[in-house]
Structures are given as C-alpha cells and as structure tokens.
Amino acid sequence: MELEILFEDGEALVIDKPGGLPLDTPRAGGPSLEDRLDELKLGFHRHPAPVHRLDRDTSGCLLLARNPKALKRFSAAFEEKQVQKRYLGIVAGTLAEMEGTIALNLSKVSTAKDGWRMIPAKKGKPAVTHWRKLDEKNGLTLVEFRPETGRTHQIRVHAASGLGHALLGDPVYGSSKGAPRTMLHAAGLTVPRGDKEPIVAVAPLPKDFAALGFSDE
C-alpha cells in the first residue's frame, strides 16, 4: 500500500491513508500504519505521531505531528473543534432531502456476543453532523458529511440512525454486502495554526468510489 503525502512541512504531515490499513497493529497481526512510521520520518529523527483516529476501513486525510509540541497543539485544535473536516460517504439507499443536520448523542455499549458498538442515547455524548446529498446512482447516494464533533463511529451511526441508511459495506451498522469495506473517505482537512498558515489537505476520491460511478465534483 503506497502512502501518498498530501501536505508536508516542518511540524506536520498529512497522508492519504488507504482504506483497510489500521493505525495500530491488529491483535491477529498483519500490516498497520505503525509499521510504516519509519518511512514517514522523511529525514527527521523522530517518528511522526497520528493526531486523530480514522477507522481501519476509512480512507483519506490523516494528520501526523512531527514533534511533541506540534502534537499537543494539533490535539488541542481537535478538542476545541477548530478543525474543519470533510468526509464523503456512500450510503446504501436514496435520500428524499438534499441536506440537513443530525444531532444524536452517542454512547458505547458492549456485549460478549457482538463486541462493542456506538448507539444513539439521550445520556450519551453530544454529536452533530451536517450532511449534503451530492449524487445518486443505482440506489446508492454519495453524501458529504461535515462533523462538528469527533465521536467514535459518529458518521457511521449518524448515517444509519439519522439518515436511515447505513454506509455501504458497513458490517456493524448496516451490511457488509455491496462493498469490501465501509465506504467512508476523509476527503478534506483544515487545521488552523494561529499566526502560521493553516494545514490544508485534500485527498482524491478513492478508486472504489469511482468504480461505483461517483466523482467528487
């Protein structure tokens, strides 16, 4: 898996993370981003560190900090909701409305049979996602998601429970049929840096999205 670099300067890297590549080494073994940090030093002495999380299946913009001070500042920007994130997702179904906002609090539940998942719950943590329909083909819809908060599995649960249609290929909140992975792509990232120019990165539409007839235009 080639790691394309979308942005690079002295304190930050943004890579286009391939779908299917986990950040941490899986319990069962196999490749992960952890194995690739050496090649991402790019002449620096330290390994870069991921600032935020992307699910294993999610492709696209992943920010890595190249020193501890930068990691602290970038993490604070995420926590203070200063970071603009744009995702593209393919949902398994058609939508009557063109755009809207989903506000569903989320809580984590766990069972021995199914493992853990996130569910909408009044007493859960607040989660807000703005969405817009971009295109529709063969009973599938390309949707732009702009999350205000960064809860675990937020877009996946908001698609399934807020839009009424899970992301295509999502084995937890929908069905694994129709795609070999959960069809979610982190298409854009903007991180403010005070007096410095912001970090701006755009990840091209993945081939598996294009293979279903969609384009990011």
Rank of each mutant, 00 (worst) to 15 (best):
D170H: 12
A159Q: 03
A28Q: 15
P68S: 07
C61H: 00
K177E: 15
K113T: 15
V83L: 09
R181K: 11
K113F: 15
T182F: 00
L189F: 00
L42D: 00
L104T: 01
R146Y: 05
E2Q: 15
P198W: 01
T152L: 12
A203M: 05
P48M: 01
T58Q: 00
L104N: 05
K207Q: 14
L189C: 03
L184S: 05
I90C: 08
L23H: 02
P22H: 11
R146C: 13
V143Q: 08
P48T: 00
D114V: 14
E79H: 10
T25C: 14
S107R: 15
I199Y: 02
E4A: 14
A201I: 09
L106D: 04
A203K: 01
A103W: 07
A77I: 02
G194W: 06
L95W: 10
A103M: 07
L189R: 01
A127W: 03
E8N: 12
L64N: 01
T149S: 14
P18F: 08
A112Y: 12
L13A: 04
G164L: 08
M118Y: 03
E80N: 13
E217A: 13
A121S: 13
E144Y: 10
G124Q: 07
P180V: 02
F214P: 00
A65S: 09
R117M: 14
A187S: 12
A166Q: 07
R36M: 15
G93A: 03
G178K: 07
G178T: 11
N105T: 08
R46S: 09
R73E: 13
H52Q: 07
V200F: 00
E8I: 01
H52W: 08
P22T: 04
E8D: 14
L142F: 11
S175P: 07
D208P: 02
A160I: 06
R151W: 06
I119M: 03
G30S: 12
V191W: 00
T111G: 14
D114R: 13
R27L: 15
I15L: 06
G174S: 02
G213I: 12
E2S: 13
L142S: 11
E8W: 01
L134P: 02
A49P: 01
D16A: 13
E34W: 09
E148S: 13
L71Q: 13
L106V: 01
R156K: 02
R36L: 15
L42Y: 00
T94W: 07
A112C: 07
P206R: 05
A112P: 08
A160M: 05
R181H: 12
V91S: 09
L95D: 04
K137H: 12
L205K: 09
K85H: 04
A187P: 06
L134Y: 00
P204H: 03
L106Y: 05
P48R: 05
D16N: 15
L62N: 00
L88I: 00
D35A: 09
R132N: 08
P192V: 04
R86D: 06
T101S: 10
G60Y: 01
H52R: 03
L6F: 06
A166N: 06
L167G: 02
